[in-house]
Simulated scan of single mutants.
Amino acid sequence: MISVRHPLIESRPPATFCDVFLYKCKSCNLVIHKNCKDLIRFNCQNPQQNESQQIMKSPPEEKFDTIKRTFSNSQLASRLERYNKTVRNSFVMQLRKDYSFTGYIRVELELTRPITVLDGNEPPRVKYLPKNTVKAIYLTSQTSASQVVKALLQKFKITNDARKFMLCERIQKGRKEESHVTIRPMTEFERPLFLTLLWGSAHTGHGFRLKDHQEAEPDWFDFEEHELKQFLRLYNDEKEKALNEIQEGFEVRRYQIVKILKERKEPLVSPILH
C-alpha cells in the first residue's frame, strides 16, 4: 500500500500517555500522535465530502436522449474516433462490424442503506458498502441502465432486489474541492455507453452513480428474520459510534477549558453531567 499523508489539523485531545500535541484527520477524525503521523498507510479522503448534490427528475435533454437519438454509420465512426482521442487510459470504445460498439463506464456506488451479500458458502451477510467504491464495467451500446444495475449487483454478490437501486447520470460543475453535482435518475431503457459517447469527451464532468431508490421506505416484510436481526445490530453499532463521537468531542472541549483555567490560576468547578 502507498503511504498517503492525511489532511491533518492540530488539536489537543485529552492526554493519555503523554501531554504533547496530537493530530486529528479532517476526513475521518483519526487522532494520532505527532511522531506517528507519517506512518499512516491508508487514504481516507472522501472526494464527495464537500459536494453539493441536487436530484433532478426531469428527462434528459434532447441531445442526450439515448432512446430517440440515432447516427448514420459514418457519423458514428467519426464520433467514436473523436471520443477515443480524449481517453487517457485503456477505456476506449471499439466499433463492431454491425456498427454497435463496446466500451467501459465507471460507476460510483453511493449506497446509504445496508445490503445483503453472499460470501462463498457462508450465510448471507448484511453490511454497508464502503464509501467511494468505484467499479468499471464492460458493456455494449445496447446495454440498458437496468442491465447495468443487475450486472453491478452480480459483481458485488449483492442479493437485494434490483428494483431497490437506480443508476443515475452524474453531472459535476465547479472545482473538485467545492463542486456542485446534479444527479439525474436514468430510466431503465436508457443506454449508458451511448450516453457516454453523446457527452463527446471522457473528461466532461459527467459520470454514473448507483444509488438507493428513495421513492419509499424499505418493505421490511421482504427481509428474512436473520437479515432483520443484522439490521438491528448495524443500527445499534451506528448509535454507539455516534454517542462515542459526542463523548470524545466533549472530552476535547473539557480538556481545553481545564487547561485555560489552570493557566489563569482560577478555581476549577466540576461540571455536572446530566
Rank of each mutant, 00 (worst) to 15 (best):
G174D: 06
R175S: 15
R175G: 15
K176S: 04
E177G: 07
E177N: 07
E177K: 06
S179V: 06
S179M: 08
S179W: 02
S179C: 15
S179N: 12
H180S: 14
H180D: 03
H180C: 09
V181T: 08
V181I: 07
V181L: 06
T182F: 09
T182P: 00
T182E: 12
T182I: 15
T182W: 10
I183P: 05
R184L: 12
R184T: 11
R184N: 12
P185N: 03
T187R: 01
E188C: 09
E188S: 14
F189N: 13
F189H: 14
F189R: 15
E190W: 07
E190C: 12
R191D: 05
R191F: 07
R191P: 08
P192S: 02
P192V: 07
L193C: 09
L193K: 05
F194Y: 14
F194L: 15
T196R: 02
L198R: 06
W199D: 08
G200L: 09
G200D: 05
S201L: 11
A202S: 04
A202V: 01
A202L: 02
A202G: 08
T204F: 07
G205C: 00
G205M: 05
G205N: 00
H206C: 09
G207Y: 01
G207N: 10
G207L: 01
F208L: 08
R209I: 15
R209E: 04
L210D: 00
K211M: 13
K211L: 07
K211A: 14
